[in-house]
């Protein structure tokens, strides 16, 4: 919490600021995002990684107060538009939210393959979006054509098509085009490449890089795919058991990870250059949101920890640089969990 304030105070230009943000289901019994303080910087590409069910999708949803029912978001999410007054997302009415959504912040959901209404042509999806945000149709369509061309889509053909007539990659790009058409400032992507083949994943990633430069976007990229994210992200946040355990510049995190979980995660990633025998899964299971371990949440699976870890919650400390982790024994972790992850060299 303190860290987030200092970031604003130290003149780092922040787009999002999260204070004590939690997401809970079942009337607060099942906490799937736990008391997160965080800030997203303007113009960066933030990667958020973690296992399935670590709360990373919830983190992405909470930025727009778009957690699916019956989940509830608590805490404070503030959005700082470029040339406007700050807006507190968590305190906005539905109508106000409707205006911010898609105009300022767009969210490319996990299920891009079913993100379009099957009974409507792609063109009508664009048009209804323009209507909802009072954008003149002509102007909007001109921009849509431009964005589509940037994404190597044939605007004429795609516009006429119905969702089922497009391939997976085309649908994904059409959704990205749709999300950029109102010139938003922030693009949140939740596993945007999950259902695509490897080649298409790479293609989408490099497209996103191009697009980001051209449209001056801030991107929040949520994925479990470390290989992909390391190519595109400026900063990398690692989530474990519904909170952040490590955050830092991508290269820093990849080559000099502090938290034993991050190191284990990196070691579990398959890569071509490394030896397959070095690849290791993480023993044990990610905790259930109803039954979260005391102290450091990673302690039951941690090879480094001791008694302290079982009782005391570690603070999210940085060593003065941009790189921070929540671990009691950063040095021990670095020495006892050797990295054999080849990706840092790419």
């Amino acid at each position: 919490m303190a860290r987030a304030r200092t970031e604003r105070e130290t003149d780092i230009d922040v787009v999002f600021e999260l204070e004590n943000v939690s997401v809970a289901f079942d009337d607060g019994d099942t906490v799937v995002l736990d008391d997160v303080d965080f800030s997203v910087r303007r113009g960066e590409t933030l990667g958020v990684v973690g296992e399935s069910g670590s709360g990373k999708s919830m983190f992405a949803s909470s930025l727009l107060d778009a957690v699916v029912d019956p989940g509830r978001t608590t805490g404070k999410v503030t959005y700082y538009p470029k040339d406007d007054d700050p807006m507190v997302i968590t305190e906005m009415s539905d109508d106000e939210l409707r205006d911010v959504r898609w105009e300022n912040i767009t969210f490319v959901v996990q299920a891009a393959q079913s993100a379009f209404n099957p009974t409507m042509s792609i063109k009508n999806h664009f048009i209804e979006t323009f209507n909802a945000h009072d954008v003149p149709k002509r102007e909007g369509l001109e921009r849509a054509v431009e964005v589509m061309q940037d994404l190597y889509l044939n605007p004429k053909q795609v516009m006429q098509s119905y969702p089922h007539e497009l391939s997976g990659g085309m649908k994904q790009r059409a959704l990205i085009a749709l999300s950029l058409v109102l010139d938003p400032e922030v693009l949140i992507l939740d596993e945007p490449t999950a259902s695509l083949d490897l080649l298409m994943q790479r293609a989408i990633i490099s497209l996103l890089e191009e697009i980001k430069e051209k449209y001056e976007l801030t991107m929040v990229f949520v994925t479990h795919n470390l290989n992909l994210i390391s190519v595109i992200a400026d900063r990398l946040g690692v989530m474990y058991a519904f909170e952040f355990v490590e955050l830092g510049p991508t290269r820093e995190v990849l080559t000099n990870a502090t938290h034993p979980y991050t190191r284990a995660l990196l070691n579990s990633v398959p890569n071509l250059s490394g030896d397959i025998t070095d690849m290791a899964g993480i023993p044990g299971q990610a905790p259930n949101p109803k039954d979260i371990p005391s102290g450091c949440r990673y302690h039951p699976r941690c090879p480094v920890g001791d008694r302290t870890c079982e009782t005391t919650i570690p603070t999210f400390d940085s060593d003065g640089s941009d790189h921070a982790a929540a671990c009691h024994y950063p040095e021990r972790s670095r020495s006892q969990v050797p990295l054999n992850f080849g990706l840092g060299d790419q």
Partner: peptide
């Protein structure tokens, strides 16, 4: 359905 959620996120009424 997913597209209903996306429609909400797109700011449709």
């Amino acid at each position: 359905k997913d597209y209903i959620r996306v429609a909400h996120l797109r700011g449709l009424s």
